[in-house]
Nucleic acid binder design. Structure first.
Lengths: 190, 190
DNA sequence: GTCTATATTCCGATAGAC
DNA sequence: GTCTATCGGAATATAGAC
């Protein structure tokens, strides 16, 4: 077994992510994935025995990516505003694609998930909030950002605006998401 | 046929709402409802032929209730802060019950819904946003509230904080929701 | 690693009796 | 308005050949 996942496995993870962002975890099936990849149902089960294993794999991928992003934010050469925009632009991309935040999507289904996935999801959420909190705290200290709340609370306010903003804008129109983003940046950046 | 829905019909609407707020629209079945009400599957179909009819009925109920709430806000004797708290307390109640906002829950499943439901959902969202926008605008005019954004944008920021805040707090703990609310009120109320 | 084939269970839905 | 009975289909999942 290679250390790197196979192309098929990666394609399944990618498609699963896309389905969750587009339709929700409980609204897609292994058949949806196998059809799109032109393989059979059973092949998907080979890579991820149960649907919860697939979700766990997707969340693990996110945890890995956000750890990398958080690490890259350690570089002292990056301005706080730039870090903020890196986060916001991820959500903007989703919005343009008619998708929603994976975390937000899975949060809705929280009570239908097995304990192992709940734990991972909590870890991912705290990872993201912690990362944003750090960006805010350091940005404020350097005089690049301004806010009156604690960094923890401000990170929650910011991320709920972004995640739910994308969901809202999928229904009421992209202009609403743009307005939210502009407002957030104007308010935060000195 | 009476103008008022039967007890059973109302119980189905109530349970359906609860399931959506707890598990999500695509994660409960007519069997779940019939079991809890000690009736048979077919009886539920009598009141709501298809699941989408049930969801449409639930959303219609919400539209009706929010129209009433908006109307009650027309009373000039109510302070803006009081109106705000009436809105916030609805979300606090959800939070205490481990439920999430119905609109937020259904938004995740948006792309799996038939056109008739999408239309109703959009109407409900604009109704709520419009109501909040009016509260904010009038509160600012009377010097009771303060904010720099347009009332429309501020209403979106506020409602996304509340809706996603409840979802977040279901996972990270109720204290986070409380912190969000306190921050919102402190920021808004003069 | 993918296939065929199949098992099981559940879901949404309907016909027709009471 | 609720029941019994049942249907067609879909979802999750597994056994075993290739």
């Amino acid at each position: 077994m290679a250390a790197r996942p196979t192309d098929t496995k990666e394609a399944i993870l990618r498609l699963g992510t896309e389905f969750i962002q587009t339709y929700g975890y409980n609204a897609f099936s292994y058949a949806d994935i196998s059809k799109e990849l032109h393989i059979k149902n059973a092949a998907v089960h080979y890579h991820f025995p149960g649907k919860e294993d697939l979700l766990a794999g997707i969340i693990d991928q996110y945890i890995h990516r956000y750890r990398e992003l958080a690490k890259s934010f350690g570089n002292p050469g990056i301005a706080a505003k730039q870090k903020l925009q890196a986060i916001i632009s991820r959500y903007s991309l989703l919005c343009e694609q008619g998708k929603i935040c994976l975390i937000g999507s899975v949060c809705t289904d929280y009570n239908t998930l097995p304990e192992s996935v709940k734990t991972r999801l909590t870890e991912l959420i705290e990872l993201v909030l912690g990362m944003v909190e750090k960006v805010l705290k350091e940005g404020k200290k350097k005089g690049e950002l301004q806010f009156t709340e604690t960094a923890r609370v401000k990170s929650m306010l910011l991320m709920t605006n972004l995640a739910a903003g994308v969901q809202l804008a999928r229904i009421t129109g992209q202009k609403d998401y743009t307005a939210i983003c502009n407002s957030l940046l104007k308010q935060l950046v000195v």
